[in-house]
Every structure is written in C-alpha cells, then in structure tokens.
Design a protein around this nucleic acid. Structure first.
Length: 709
DNA sequence: ATAGGGTTAG
C-alpha cells in the first residue's frame, strides 16, 4: 500500500496549488513595478513630484462623487462582472493632461454649529445631559422633566450629542419625539444612531432606519454609513451589505465615506473580487481613493497574504499621488508581515521614519512581531534600542509583543529583565499574555522549574492561565518526562476553565509520541477528555484491531477535517512519530501518503532539470525519516527502470531556527551516516544536505541488488 | 467627542 506514495511523492509539485492565491488580481491589467531595489522606496521619490494643480474652477463646481457614480446606479453589485470593464485598466475619465483633474470629493463635513457657542444656556444643558448620563435608567423619566430650558431643536440636539450610553440616547430621543415641538429631521436619527452604534445596537439602529423610511424622513450618506459600520462592528456583514444595496436601489449615490465603509465590509467578508470590482468601478468614474480606502485594501490583501495585491495597491497609490500616512504605513507593515516579507517591512519602516513620520505603538508592535517571527534577533534588538533612544511611544500590547519576540528568539535574559520591569511598574503589571510569553520562553528552553514557579505565581496573583500558557507548560513537562506532574497540571488547568484547543491536543499528542507504556496511557487519558476521536484514531493505528487502508483513510479524513487548519500538519507529524516509535513503519508510510494527498505537506518534493529536492523542514523527525525512505524507494525504482535522473539531489531539514524543527538536522545527519547514504551537509549551509547522482545511484544499487536484477 | 470611513497580541 505504501508504495503508492512513491508515485504521489515524486511529481508532487504538479499538484501543489501554489498559485491559487494569486488569482485575485487576474481581472486587472497586469501592473508593472520597477524590478530593482528602488521598488522598496516606492514612495520616497514622489515628494519631489509637483503637487497637483490647484482646482481653479473652485470646488463647488466639481461634480460630487455621487454624480460621478451615477452611471453605475443602474446596476447593482450582485451583477456578474462585466468582462470588458474588468479587463481594462480603469482609465481616467479626464484624458486631457493640460486640464486638471477635478479636485472633487472633498468631504462636506459638518462643522460644529456656531449657535452652540453663543448659546448662553449651553452650560446648563450640558450639565443636565451629564446628569442624565449618570442617572439610573429608572430615574430617567423624573429627571427629564427637570430640563432647565425648553427642548427646542438646538437644545435637544445639544443634549442628544452629549448623551453617551445608548439607552439614554434612545430614551431621550423618544421623549423628544413625544414632545412634538418641532419636526424630527435626519440629523436627530443620525446622532441617535451614532450612540447606538457605539453600544453595538444594530437591531435598534435598524428599527430607527425603518421608522425613517415609514415616516418619509430622508436617509442620507451619514445615515447609511452609520448603519453599515454598525453592522460591520456587530459582525452582521450581510446586514451591512443589505443596507448598501438598499441604498443603491433608492438611487442615492455613495460618497467616499460610505464607499470606503462598504469596501471594508466586503474586505472583511473576504470578498476580494467584489472589493476590486467596486474599487475599479469607482476609479473608472473618476473617484480618487484616499488614504482610508487604501488602508482598507492593504489590510484586505494582507489578510490574504497576497503580496501581488499589496504591490498593486502601492502602485495605485503612487500613480494617484497619495503619500502613505501613519495608518497606511502601519497597515502596510502588518500586511508585509502576513505575506512573509520581513525585508520589505524593514525597508518601508526606514522609509517612513526617513519621511519624518514618528512611529506609534502599532507600528512598533507590527515590526517587532515581524522580526521575532523571522528570527531576526539583531534587527529586533536594534529596533528595541531605537525605541528607547528616541522615546518612541510604548504601550501594554507592545510590551507583551516584545516578550513574545523574546520567546521567538530565545532571549531569556532580555525577557526576564523586561518582565521584572513590568512587575515593578504601576501601570503595566504583567497579565496573562505576559505570563504566557514567559511560559513560552521557559517551556521551549526546557526550564521546567522556572516555568512551574511562574505558574504558581500566576495562581497566587490571580492571573488567569490561558490555553496557550497551558500548552507551553505541558510541552515543558512532557519533554522533562514529568508525566505525573503533567497529568496533575492538565486536570488543574481544565478545572480552572481552560478549554483545550487543537494546539493543546497536538502538544499532548507529541508527548504521547515519545512516551512509552504507562506514561503514554496517562497522557492519552488526558487527550481522551479533550478529543476522544483523536484517541480513537490512535488506537486504530496502533491497536490490535485490523483496519484496511480505505478504512484508515476515512477515519483520517474524519479526524483531520474536524481539526483547525494550522494544527493538521502537526497532528499528522505526531501520528507518524507515534507509529514509527512503536514499530508500525508501514502505517507511518500510509499516514505520510494521506497527509500528502490532503495537502498537508506542500512543496515536500520539488524537481528541476538539474536538481531534485526533498524539503522536510516542516516535518517531525519520524515523518522526515519516513519521507526520506519513501524518496529513496522511489529512486531505487527509477534506477531500476534506468530512467533519467538529475545531477544533484538535496534534502533540506532547515537550520533549526524554528522551535519545532530543532534537532531535525542532526537527526537526519546521523540517519544518513547510519545507513551510509551519500548525503553530506553543505559547508556554511546548515540543514542542507546534498548528494551527486553518481554517488546516490551506486549507493542505491549496492543497497538493493536484488531489486536491480 | 459635538451626525458617517482605516491600523496593534499565540
């Protein structure tokens, strides 16, 4: 059965769908970026560019965004994309370069009404509103009767604007309506909705909106954008879209606030194509997106780890002449982090600082996180030092991110110093995140005593243990083979309210893989509480019960499809280790095969004309061993069939900078030495092993002469 | 704060 893997393994890269995430932009004109290093400094030259010509016509003559989008009002977003529209670069409507583009779309923001400042009653009304803010809801009806001045339109608006809790806003709004002294205009609904949005009361907002429709009160862009963003904040994205479509149908055109709010709704729904369709429609109609719209797009492509998308947005910004501001840079750095581009993030940060923008907490949090994940210790420490020297802003999240970075980089001393400093400070006492980061450091460094001490301290200080901290400690106790302590700790944690997740299960499973006998049974009984189906599968693998490959496949599929995506490969790695450590090598090969066909090991084997490479960086020792055996078995067959082979073979275990990959390189080295395979670690490239075709072929032939004849 | 849009933690 396991021989099937050889056919799956070798041509694997043909199946690897590594281009699927790239499709997001295929409907736009391919964009070009400079290919040299200047690309990083994409914004740095634009400051020398001439500023856009002044709008000589004056702004009041410019068509509003709504007017510009009019031609679109005949179609709604649910329409199928118009191919010709999508395939053409959104050309500016303003083709004559001598004529300036209209500087439309400056918002008509409502200024604070000047009547307020001349209102001598203002102070009284403010105080009254404060009293309403603070009062018990049941006292509201009696207090409202003591209103110091008559509820005229202006007075009512002033109070409504000062009320904070949504309950009070709603009570007051209803009271004003009942007084019936002036007609209720749109602004009253809008102000009330703002308060309701603050309290995430989508249902109440919707009720008010229907009331407006029923009473013939105009819903304007402010009303719609408030409804839409409230839906967004309440995670009622479908509702948000529904109200946007309703707005379209009434013929009211979105202005740029509504526009970016809706783009963000589609972005948060992951509907990249809808976002880009809407974006390009707007562009085609002369809309000039602003920083906020670009921040939305960058965030979306960042979430998708779509680097091409990010480049597209950068290109758009450059061509439109929008300089990134602090928020755009922050979003951009996050996006670069998510798409695995630490170098670009670093360049962008330098560009930002060079342009005179002072980084804030979010900027630094993003960058520290990126350097930690990339294991860039030098850059991380340098940045930390610059933070101190320049007195850049720091907050609690940044402190905790620094601790996590120390955990990623194994910087025990630095972390301890920072942690002690936090304990000594008044404002930033360590919380469960901080303790978790420390548990992570001690756990991955094997400092059991320190980790247990920290756990006791958490209990004493009443800092809640979370599931990640629990996972770190279990990993630590497991490695130290303190199984009785592990079981006791697990029981305590579960009783204390920790709900095991898939990572924790994966951690328990890995302890099972290197334990024997009673110890393994004890850990399995913990796992049984958290994930009985997983334990049933382990029993199926190793128990006396015979199961054929098809049965195994079905169960494997059932277990894995109920597992978080990021925990699937660790599960499979551990299961393979469990089989190998118990002598069920055949089962291990079957599991590797299953893992391969379900896409858990993308890029495991890559082939070029010159070189075939086995990439086991994300595999456990047992899984890597199994993959290597499989690879060699395949080679033996190819040699036997006298098919052509490349000149070079390589196996990449990685240098062990990642916590879970540590020891894989040395395990591989001793394995190839033991079986006398001709793989040698490359000088200066630790974790990278190569063999020539000649050496490998003669080794294969010497090893399995029976197969050759 | 003075009616509406964007960014921070395994």
């Amino acid at each position: 059965m396991a021989t099937n893997l050889s056919t799956a393994l070798v041509p694997y890269h043909h199946h690897h769908p590594d281009t699927t995430h790239r499709r997001t932009l295929h409907f736009t004109t391919p964009f070009r970026l400079p290919t040299n290093k200047k690309r990083l400094a994409i914004f740095s030259n634009s400051s020398k560019k001439a500023p856009p010509p002044p709008a000589v016509d004056g702004e009041q003559n410019s068509p509003s965004l709504a007017d510009q989008l009019k031609p679109l009002s005949t179609t709604t977003l649910s329409d199928q994309p118009n191919e010709t529209q999508l395939l053409s670069k959104p050309k500016s409507t303003w083709v004559n370069p001598t004529k300036s583009k209209p500087s439309v779309l400056s918002l008509q923001r409502h200024k604070r009404s000047s009547s307020y400042s001349f209102n001598p009653q203002m102070k009284d009304l403010r105080q009254f509103a404060m009293k309403l803010n603070d009062c018990d809801e049941s006292d509201f009806p009696s207090i409202i009767e003591s209103i110091p001045h008559p509820p005229t339109r202006e007075n009512a608006l002033l109070i409504l604007n000062t009320l904070r809790p949504w309950q009070k806003s709603l009570l007051f709004f209803n009271w004003v309506k009942a007084q019936n002294v002036f007609p209720i205009e749109t602004i009253f609904y809008n102000v009330t909705m703002r308060s309701l949005r603050f309290g995430r009361q989508f249902h109440h907002i919707e009720t008010l909106a229907f009331e407006m429709i029923e009473n013939g009160i105009e819903l304007d862009n402010i009303t719609y954008s408030t409804i839409i963003t409230c839906g967004k904040r309440c995670n009622l994205f479908d509702k948000a879209v529904e109200w946007f479509e309703r707005m379209y149908k009434t013929g009211l055109m979105p202005d740029e606030v509504t526009y970016s709010a809706v783009l963000d709704v589609y972005a948060k729904l992951g509907k990249v194509e809808e976002v880009m369709r809407l974006y390009e429609r707007g562009r085609a109609s002369g809309w000039k997106p602003d920083s906020i719209a670009f921040a939305v797009l960058l965030k979306m492509f960042g979430e998708k780890a779509d680097y091409d998308g990010i480049r597209y947005v950068l290109q758009e910004m450059k061509s439109i002449g929008i300089e990134p501001n602090l928020v755009v840079y922050n979003t951009l750095l996050e996006a670069m982090g998510k798409s695995g581009k630490p170098g670009l993030a670093r360049s962008l940060f330098e560009e930002m600082v060079g342009s005179g923008i002072i980084p804030n907490e979010k900027t630094l949090t993003a960058l520290i996180k990126i350097y930690g994940r990339a294991r860039w210790a030098r850059d991380a420490l340098e940045l930390w030092e610059r933070m101190r020297v320049n007195s850049w802003p720091v907050d609690f999240i940044l402190y905790n991110t620094l601790l996590s970075m120390c955990a990623d980089l194994g910087l025990v001393d630095e972390a301890e110093k920072l942690f002690e400093g936090m304990k000594g400070s008044e404002k930033r006492k360590p919380d469960s995140w901080s303790y978790t980061a420390m548990l992570n450091i001690y756990g991955s460094g094997g400092h059991v005593e320190k980790a247990m001490f920290l756990f006791e301290e958490m209990l004493a200080k009443g800092v809640g243990l979370n599931v990640m901290g629990c996972t770190c400690l279990i990993q630590c106790l497991g490695r130290a083979k303190r199984i009785n302590d592990l079981v006791r700790f697990f029981e305590t944690a579960v009783k204390g309210g920790v709900t095991p997740d898939d990572r924790l299960c994966g951690c328990l499973l890995s302890v099972v893989s290197y334990c024997e006998g009673d110890d393994a049974m004890k850990v399995l009984s913990c796992l049984e509480q958290a994930n009985p189906k997983l334990v049933a599968f382990v029993n199926l693998l190793c128990g006396g019960e015979s199961v054929d490959f098809e049965g195994l496949k079905e169960e494997f599929k059932r277990v894995l499809s109920n597992t978080d995506v990021e925990a699937r490969r660790p599960f499979c790695n551990c299961l393979i280790d469990i089989c190998r450590n118990r002598g069920f090598d055949e089962r291990a090969h079957e599991l590797l095969y299953l893992g391969t066909i379900y896409g858990l090991y993308p890029g495991l084997h890559t082939k070029t004309k010159e070189e075939w490479r086995l990439n086991v960086r994300s595999l456990s020792v047992g899984a890597a061993h199994t993959a290597f055996e499989e690879w060699m078995g395949t080679l033996a067959k190819i040699v036997q069939r006298q098919e052509s082979l490349p000149a070079l073979f390589s196996a990449n275990t990685g240098a062990g900078t990642h916590k879970f990959a540590q020891g894989l390189g040395s395990a591989f080295a001793s394995h190839v030495e033991k079986i006398a395979a001709p793989f040698r670690e490359t000088e200066g490239k630790s974790g990278f092993f190569v063999a020539t075709r000649e050496d490998l072929v003669s080794w294969v032939e010497s090893r399995a002469p029976s197969v050759m004849t």
